[in-house]
Design a binder for these strands. Sequence first.
DNA 1: ATAGGGTTAG
Length: 609
Amino acid sequence: MPYLYKSNHCRLFHSPVTNRTPPSVSHPCELLEEECVASLIQKCPDMRTLRQIHAHFVKSPANSSSFYALSKILAFCALSPSGDLAYARRLFAQIPHPNVFSWNSMIRGSSQLPHPSKEPIFLYKQMLQKGFALPNSFTLAFVLKACSLISAFLEGRQIHCHAFKHGLYSSPFVQTGLLNFYAKCEELVAARLIFDEIPDKNLIAWSAMIGGYARLGLVNAALELFREMQGAGISPDEVTMVSVIQACAKAGALDLGKWVHAFIDRNGIKADLELKTALIDMYAKCGEIDRARKVFDRMEVRDTKAWSSMIVGLAIHGLVKDALELFSRMLESKVRPNHVTFIGVLSACAHSGLVSDGRRFWSIMHELGIEPMMEHYGCMVDLLCRSGLFEEAYSFVNTMPIMPNSVIWRTLLVGCKSNGSLDKAELVAKQLLELEPLSAENYVLVSNLYASSSQWEKVSYMRKKMKDNGVKVVPGCSSIEVDGFLHEFVVGDESHPEIKEIRKVLREITERVRLAGHEPWTSAVLHDVGEEEKEVALCEHSERLAIAFGLLKTKAPVPIRVVKNLRVCSDCHEVTKIISKAYNREIIVRDRVRFHRFVNGVCSCNDFW
DNA sequence: ATAGGGTTAG
């Protein structure tokens, strides 16, 4: 059907380029044979040249029925970094019965866009509906990748069925595709079932499974598999190591992270851009900002993510000056900052109350065409509140072009308290509880606020409201790393083998907390327990369990690391302060925003709340 | 005939 290509010829070409020989392609083909098109495409540097190849191809009637050459042209447009997916789409639309190769090119091409969509999944559905081409192992691998990018669980599960239906399940590419898909959807049990079924697990399968555990911060599972992998005689590469390092970072497991770093050096694994960025992130998240900086300084090439991870790391450590200096250097080296970089920069400003700097960076961000996201608004609200500009923060939130989320309202609520704007507090609290009526921490925060102004009736009203709404307390969770193993503690969980000794130390801590004049009423609100159980409620708080464990095991004057606090309340910080002083130890507490380094009861963070 | 699966910052 030659007319098909000729008649659409004009639509595909915006300029008359048909009679010129491509400058960079000096292939002496008179007639563009199939192989010739293929070899030209191989060397094709850009779309301009491709259009010319395409034009020659279209002009030659001998070629117009060559689906092979056409699929080569299509693949270039859809897949090459110098291709043009829009051009590929137009070309594809003109092919009456695309072959499986062309479908695959379109599916893969459309899943490589910077903003993943359902387009590849729709294409796959179309392919099945039309029924002219049957999916092969490439198809399933590509569409599974697309599903994993957007966590399209239902679609991916269907493809799992298709793999059996079309007899493609035995393909290692389909298997790792499925494994990775389930892992990305956080369905680790399903992922593990597939992993265990793979007879000859290769490097990719091992890495995908380790990566699945790593993303969820299951550091022990990730490391156990990493050890098993080596036992099975498979050598990890830099991609595997990124996941292992990420697992350490997520869990705040510094000693493990250091060991893994040494492993990388010892085994001659090349630390590339990604791995170095992962190392920076790991050291920063584990509280070793100097080591993070060392890795960063030794890098030869740094992209936006590398710069950002260092800037964010410095910011969460409260090293504001260094963070902002680094940002200037980043601009000098012509690496374009993105929204994550600005989260680091703005949060750095917020930590030190640098209002005018914060405002300046806010406008630079706009000048660079970066649309502020919720996190950026959050930083600005925090900055204004900490700088005593509560009224401005309040009107800032009320004029936001996007609906403020609970984090924004909570920031503002804390701002109400510190700025003494209790009149606005009720309004903010109302917004917060309307938006998120099922989260226990909101009730605690609001009732803390009432308690600070001795409005006890409102305190008990909050407790009642929480009960009426059926709010369940999500157990707090902390972890502590001892001798290369991460111990996790969940509130109420007594399964730890050393629970008796832990309890003994906890009682001692409780006594010290009491002697210091603190009442553990935050926990009492949460647990609603009688006087007798109050002590238990306090003790059961995960962070204190972790601290207690650290005191048991850590006899030498080394820092006690309390990390991965999912729920850190101001009460915890108080306790940490007291313990640090009593035991003359350095305690590092990490919350979602920053580090608090307590030495002899004094927090190095100047904005300790 | 053509091609492919695991990785970094919030």
